[in-house]
């Protein structure tokens, strides 16, 4: 790629703007990014990365700035995140990570939308009942942020297909809804040596943990696998409330960003528990 020519074109297309505290900055609009991507025959994502590297902020990320540096945002645009499960947790995780600007998203779910999803699943609408979740998630990402590269996998992850589906992920997000499938996902991530950010919800309560390849992970949370263990937990009797689901999805995304940018976690071998019945948040040590 003629990087110098692209940098010059970005500089020419850039405009003057300012952050809410009046600090001036150079910015480039979505429309200009698109125009340069076409002119240089490259993806919008690469124009955005090059902009950030040369001091120009794509306007769509203006409110990510200051909390994140331009270099942080460029690194997020280069990152690869796998999202497994595109229901309650997954729908909100897709929404947040697309707006955050995670460059490569692999969206995995073989399920279709049904009426009982409508209380909490951001991607579910009346029009989409009976339709597959993965294409809906991919369409949502394209609608929010067409700069991102999306791999759509309308299949259920299992021990056989998992390694190929999640290969090259920097982080995987567990948005599943059964205990056995979570254990399968952990085994896949362990073999791939990828950190797994996991949340689960029952009623108005949720829990969050990050499992690194060397960690016992779900064995510490659910106990060792045993024959006849129920697939579902307390959610079978309590349901899954939308505000709890979306809160836990937000927490998963905060952790994904921390791992990608800071290369560390405060949740390794810990369980963050949120209880919206009494507005408590506890961080427990698992090991």
């Amino acid at each position: 790629m003629p990087k110098k020519k692209l940098a010059a074109a970005i500089a020419a297309a850039a405009g003057k703007s300012a952050f809410p505290d009046d600090t001036p900055c150079s910015v480039i609009s979505c429309a200009q990014v698109r125009r340069l991507a076409e002119a240089f025959d490259i993806g919008d994502r690469l124009v955005e990365i090059q902009s950030l590297r040369t001091g120009v902020v794509p306007e769509r990320y203006m409110r990510n700035m200051r909390a994140y540096s331009r270099d942080d945002q460029a690194r997020l645009l280069e990152a690869r995140v796998g999202i497994v499960g595109l229901g309650g947790l997954g729908g909100s995780v897709v929404e947040i990570l697309a707006r955050l600007g995670i460059g490569h998203l692999t969206l995995i779910d073989g399920d279709i939308f049904e009426d009982s999803n409508l209380n909490r699943q951001l991607l579910s609408t009346v029009d989409l009942l009976g339709s597959a979740k993965a294409p809906a998630a991919a369409a949502r990402v394209r609608a929010i942020n067409p700069s991102l590269s999306v791999v759509l996998q309308a299949v259920f992850l299992n021990a056989e297909n998992g390694p190929e589906l999640l290969a090259s992920s920097d982080v995987v997000v567990d948005c599943l809804d059964s205990i056995d499938s979570r254990r399968t996902l952990q085994a896949v991530c362990r073999d791939l040596e990828v950190p797994l950010v996991s949340a689960a919800v029952a009623g108005a309560s949720g829990q969050l943990a990050t499992i690194f390849p060397e960690d016992p992970g779900f064995d510490l949370i659910y106990g060792a696998p045993a024959a006849g263990q129920p697939q579902k937990g307390a959610e079978a009797s309590l349901g899954t409330l939308p505000f709890a689901v979306m809160l836990m999805a937000s927490l998963e995304c905060a952790e994904v960003a921390r791992i990608l940018l800071k290369k560390e976690s405060r949740l390794q071998n810990r369980l963050l528990v949120v209880d919206l019945n009494d507005y408590t948040l506890d961080l427990f040590r698992l090991a």
Binding site: G85, G87, G88, L89, G90, C175, L176, D177, S178, I179, R182, A199, A200, V201, A202, S205, G206, Q207, Y222, P230, Q231, K232, G233, A234, E235, G239, T240, V245, V273, D282, F284
Partner: peptide, 10 residues
């Protein structure tokens, strides 16, 4: 002391 059931929903 905190006591938890299994929680797996999403």
């Amino acid at each position: 002391v905190g006591l938890f059931p299994p929680v797996g929903g999403g």
